[in-house]
Design a binder for these strands. Structure first.
Lengths: 164, 164
DNA sequence: TATTGTTATACTCTATAACTATA
DNA sequence: TATAGTTATAGAGTATAACAATA
């Protein structure tokens, strides 16, 4: 989070937004979108922190779970990162006994990736944390708002991305 | 963004969410909150990119603008970062002629920070980008949803933060 | 002793390019 | 030649600890 409240200082979210049209972010959606997302991530990290499972592993485990036998390059594309950045992560996941790597018999360049039983278990644990976290978010959002709020988030992501 | 769609692979946001209760993030608010925020930041960065102004400077300029004479330690607390991380940023902002540093006469340990005319101008330019960006977000959110959506974001940030 | 700002250092996450082994 | 994965290297962005100047 970039900005914390304090009694001593004025901040961008401060009460002077009426002074000038360009001043104050109190009413700016993009700003509060960031604050809400950061609060959500921090709350999730607090939850997961106790289990000593690195939160960043989640998406890799999830993609491998959904695509057993995927290779590293495909995984990197699916995860939106360069393939070189996965070498370290996959080595750690292998050492932790969560991911099994086998060489493809017919094309020995490929590493075929899948989850071990342990990996499935850890993924399930992370999913449970995510579910608990999302239940908390649902409680805050409220059942009346939930569908509308989710729809708006999806429209924001898709329409802002389509401007590239 | 961690995950991109593709015709070849199944992803966490894929269509298999009905298979198991724990599978699929298609309906998970925290996930879409992240996607929307990342899309918003990327769209803002595309806007600002043309002007060769580092987006990360924005919050520093804004806090200094709102608190002329603030010192580096106070600024670091306001920005939520360690004071040591500001030395480089403030040196660059000084070299770029955006921030003026003067030693406090009565306590020469303090650097008193303020914006130069140039700094005020750059801040205004960034604010204009932010306003244009937010106008785009407003268009997507829609005037019917705007107030509700913003209120929900604020509740999320404050209630999730209060659990610390 | 305590505080302000700087420096040295390191860690995480990411990327690009060059390399190897395979094809 | 082309592809899969690894390594070397670098660049943000962050943190902690030790330090010099000042109080």
């Amino acid at each position: 989070m970039d900005v914390e409240p304090s009694a001593e200082l004025k901040y961008e979210d401060g009460g002077d937004s009426s002074t000038r049209a360009t001043e104050g972010l109190a009413n700016v959606i993009g700003y509060h979108l960031r604050l809400a997302q950061e609060a959500s991530f921090a709350a999730y990290a607090r939850r997961v922190g106790d289990t000593h499972i690195w939160p960043g592993w989640y998406s890799l485990l999830r993609i491998i779970h959904d695509n057993p036998g995927i290779n590293q390059t495909e995984l990197s594309i699916a995860a939106g990162r360069d393939k070189s950045t996965l070498t370290t992560s996959l080595r750690e996941l292998g050492k932790a006994g969560l991911v099994v790597k086998t060489r493809d018999g017919s094309d020995r360049r490929n590493l075929r990736l899948s989850l071990s039983a342990n990996g499935e278990e850890h993924l399930a644990r992370l999913e449970n944390h995510a579910l608990a976290h999302d239940a908390e978010i649902d409680r805050i959002v409220g059942s009346n708002e939930r569908a509308r709020f989710l729809d708006t988030l999806k429209r924001l992501a898709s329409e802002l991305a389509n401007q590239c």
